[in-house]
Amino acid sequence: MNQPQPFAPLADHGRFDYQGIHQRPDYHWPGGKRLAVYLGFNLEHFAFGEGMGAQLGARFAEPDVLNYAWREYGNRVGAWRCLELFDALGLPAGTIANTALYDHCPELLEACAARGDELIAHGHSNASYQGTLAEDEEKALLAHCRERMATAAGTAPSGWLSPWIGESRHTPDLLAETGYRYTLNWCHDDQPVRMRTRDGRGLWAIPYPQEVNDIPMIIARKLDARAFADMIVDQFDEMLAQSERQPLVMGIALHPYLMGQPYRLRHLRRALTHIAAHRDALWLTTPGAICDHMDGLFL
Results as ranks from 00 to 15, higher is better:
Q235S: 13
H278S: 09
P209T: 09
G288A: 07
A220Q: 15
R226C: 09
D237A: 13
V212W: 01
I290P: 00
W283K: 09
H274Y: 13
N213F: 12
L272A: 10
Y263S: 12
I215M: 15
M239P: 00
L265S: 11
I290T: 04
P247V: 11
S243C: 13
H293C: 02
G288Y: 03
Y208T: 00
A271V: 07
A276L: 05
T273H: 15
I252L: 15
L248H: 04
N213E: 06
R266G: 06
P247W: 05
L240K: 10
V212F: 04
G251H: 07
M259Y: 09
R279H: 09
L297D: 02
I215C: 11
A289V: 03
R266E: 06
C291R: 11
Q242E: 07
Q242L: 12
E244R: 14
I275Q: 08
M294V: 01
A241Y: 05
R270F: 08
G251D: 13
L284E: 07
Y263Q: 14
R221I: 00
D224R: 14
Q246T: 12
M294G: 00
M217W: 15
G288V: 03
R226F: 12
A229G: 08
M231P: 03
T273Y: 03
N213W: 05
H293P: 00
Q261D: 01
L254A: 04
E244F: 01
R226I: 08
E244M: 08
A205V: 03
I218A: 02
V233Y: 10
D224C: 07
M217R: 15
Y257L: 07
